[in-house]
Nucleic acid binder design. Sequence first.
DNA 1: AAGAGATTTGACCAAACGGTAAAAATGATA
DNA 2: TATCATTTTTACCGTTTGGTCAAATCTCTT
Lengths: 221, 221
Amino acid sequence: MTQISASSENPAERRSKTRIQKENETRILLAALEVFSENGFRGATLDRIAATAKMSKPNLLYYFKNKEEIHVALLTDLLDVWLAPLREISPHGEPADEIGSYIRRKLESSRQFPRESRLFANEMLAGAPHIGDFLQSELKQLVDEKAAIFQGWIDEGRLAPCDPRHLLFAIWSTTQHYADFSVQVRHVLGLQPGDVSYYEEAVSMLETLFLGRLVPPASTD
Amino acid sequence: MTQISASSENPAERRSKTRIQKENETRILLAALEVFSENGFRGATLDRIAATAKMSKPNLLYYFKNKEEIHVALLTDLLDVWLAPLREISPHGEPADEIGSYIRRKLESSRQFPRESRLFANEMLAGAPHIGDFLQSELKQLVDEKAAIFQGWIDEGRLAPCDPRHLLFAIWSTTQHYADFSVQVRHVLGLQPGDVSYYEEAVSMLETLFLGRLVPPASTD
DNA sequence: AAGAGATTTGACCAAACGGTAAAAATGATA
DNA sequence: TATCATTTTTACCGTTTGGTCAAATCTCTT
């Protein structure tokens, strides 16, 4: 009798994953992240991903049925990483604390996951063909929610009057810039390719910028 | 990949250009801007550029000898546009005026040339293979020069203490974000594809952010 | 109107591309 | 160790890609 296995054709979707399966999927996704984040979806090739993963192309396609499936897998993982820092913003904290720690979380995310950030940036530049729905629904909803918190603080005079959603844009852009444009940052600062020492200066700059006086002096009533 | 340089084989570089030549080069560069800015260098294809320019591929290659030459032509034009707003910063004006008008110039540039901005962003994400030299020499030099102006203002107490070069990074990222991530901006704000009405809110936000209190109240002595 | 030069096109090429089929090799298990 | 499922490889396919070539057409000048 033949063993009944999970319905899907792809080994990645069987009941339980083999050791080899887990290892290889990790290797592939890591290699794909490298290639997609540098060249975008269209600019990436399966040959390059396979070469980076030190694996033959057919073997790679044994684990993911096509190029797009790899890309989708990466983006799916990415979106959680992307949203996590935003989710943590609480209406109960002090505006300066909440915004300050959000900036630090985003900067830390940029430093730890620069390729993920560039993958996201590439998807945006291409017009978000794969995650347009996510932007319109999940992200928009979360932004509206957090913007309401900011608006509350503004109404209470604890935050300078501004458009909360544009404040978020400003935080996103300044923090992600250090991952997405790291080449430019390094060249302008005269640093070596691998050097990411500028992140400390970045924290300082962004705290000055966003907290220096954007948030009025705390009034403990 | 080769850095920007001028070569000498195609009709584009003969003594004087024909009417047809000028027209077609413009058409090609416009089409190429569209395609390169969306998909990056590797993701763009000559077929798509030719189709967008409503021209046969061999005809396109009659004007530019290969894919790279088109890309280089675009980048060369771009760099002037990119630097122009920065060049205008003067040591003689008031910090608030200079920074404020720089932000407005950069935002205006984002609104007028979003594809150029995305072209630049794509080149950065790919690791700046074509304009690495520019970043290290011309841009770095100009940044150092303008950073010195900022530092002067800081020393005089006319600008909050901060790293001037990171202040520039913050201005670049926030302003370019509206071109590079316009899809995200529109989706989050719930706007239609073509709508760029958010630029007015952007000016307001960024002036609040950078001038609200980053620059101390003017002391007219 | 004719000739010369500029422009355009269709036919083509080799390499790279995304992907498939089937056999061979390996691993797990009894 | 025999067996069976899993994994890997070899050989391949059709399409797309960057680019060439020579012939055909068009444009401008005289």
